[in-house]
Simulated scan of single mutants.
Amino acid sequence: MSKTLIVYGSTTGNTESVSDDIAKILEKNGHSVEIQDAADISVDGLADQFDTVLLGCSTWGEDEIELQDDFIPLFENLEQAALKGKKVAVFGCGDSSYEYFCGAVDVIEEKAGELGAVLLGESLKIDGDPEPEEVSAWTESIMTKM
């Protein structure tokens, strides 16, 4: 059975809700899932006991890409998370009226790739309120690669 860690940073609750929805779909399909709020975790060896790591972060800021506050320490120390060779996917919520729509997703995905993570496919970028069908379709697509 595949062990998956979902780590999210959420201010309004949307990214947390998406994390819960992803976990339910994975568990329904036989995966063991642990969900952690980025505010409550230690980065050191974060991925050690997991086959797959899903990272969720909302994006803030009009003039530059700003990660959700709780996710910043994780991002800044991501090299300590032991992502090399791990299957990783990234998701996040944002607002397409901003110049850097879901820019946090892009920078997290790029850094994970630079650290040797195996990216599972296209990231999930949610515009506004999460739609269950969108989350479900994305989760099912990455599940085929887990």
Rank of each mutant, 00 (worst) to 15 (best):
S2P: 11
S2I: 10
T4S: 02
T4E: 00
T4D: 01
L5G: 12
G9A: 06
S10F: 06
T12D: 08
T12S: 15
T12H: 13
T15F: 03
E16Q: 15
S17F: 09
S17G: 15
S17H: 05
S17K: 14
V18E: 08
S19E: 04
D21E: 15
I22V: 15
A23Q: 14
K24H: 09
E27T: 14
N29G: 05
N29C: 11
H31C: 10
H31Q: 11
V33W: 07
E34V: 14
E34W: 05
Q36F: 10
D37G: 04
A38N: 04
A38H: 08
D40Y: 03
I41Y: 10
D44M: 13
A47C: 05
Q49G: 14
Q49A: 15
F50D: 01
D51L: 00
D51K: 01
V53D: 08
L54G: 08
L55K: 02
L55T: 00
G56H: 01
G56M: 01
S58L: 11
W60D: 07
W60K: 04
W60P: 00
W60T: 01
E62C: 09
E64T: 12
E64Q: 12
I65T: 06
L67G: 03
F71Y: 09
I72M: 11
I72E: 13
F75P: 02
E76P: 03
L78W: 04
E79Q: 15
Q80N: 13
A81Y: 02
A81S: 10
L83P: 11
G85D: 00
K86G: 07
K86W: 00
K87H: 15
K87G: 13
V88P: 10
V90A: 10
G92E: 14
D95L: 10
D95I: 08
S96M: 13
S97I: 12
E99Q: 14
E99I: 11
Y100Q: 05
Y100T: 05
V105P: 12
D106P: 00
D106G: 07
D106H: 04
V107Y: 04
E109W: 02
E110T: 09
K111T: 02
A112R: 01
A112K: 06
A112S: 11
E114I: 04
G116E: 03
L119I: 13
E122Y: 03
E122L: 04
L124Y: 02
K125P: 05
K125G: 07
D127A: 06
G128K: 09
D129N: 10
E131C: 13
E131D: 15
P132H: 01
V135E: 03
S136Q: 15
A137S: 13
T139I: 01
T139L: 14
E140N: 15
S141P: 02
I142K: 13
T144R: 11
